[in-house]
């Protein structure tokens, strides 16, 4: 719980043509403990990423909410249309309010 959030990995193309739809892949190491699971008879403390927000040039494109069912080390793939050079920012937040950010730039 006290460990800092690990840095996410974002895979995005370096460049795109205007109007092109590109694939973005993200992975962040995290146990995603529900707080309901026990190990050797003891409950494992809850430690969960509950939100992922994807912004492009400051504008929110995806706002995702995770409850208990997202796997450990959340991996997500999504697509976005690129019209101009895009600064991609993805923020993961856990349920005690800590967050970690990942960035990528897609040149047009």
């Amino acid at each position: 719980m006290s460990r800092p959030l690990s840095l996410p990995r974002i895979r995005a193309p370096r460049a795109a043509k205007p109007g092109e739809i590109v694939e973005i892949r993200t992975l962040i190491e995290h146990p995603m403990e529900t707080g309901l699971r026990s190990e050797a008879g003891k409950l494992v403390a809850r430690d969960m990423l509950t939100r992922m927000i994807v912004r492009a040039n400051g504008e929110t494109l995806i706002d995702a909410e995770f409850r208990n069912g997202t796997s450990a080390n959340p991996y997500h793939v999504f697509f976005m249309r690129i019209e101009a050079t895009t600064e991609l920012e993805i923020v993961w937040t856990d349920d005690v309010g800590r967050s970690v950010k990942g960035n990528a730039r897609i040149l047009v």
Partner: peptide, 12 residues
């Protein structure tokens, strides 16, 4: 703005 309504994830 996404241009495509597709999401891939991994769940429990």
């Amino acid at each position: 703005k996404l241009g495509r309504a597709e999401v891939q994830t991994r769940i429990r």
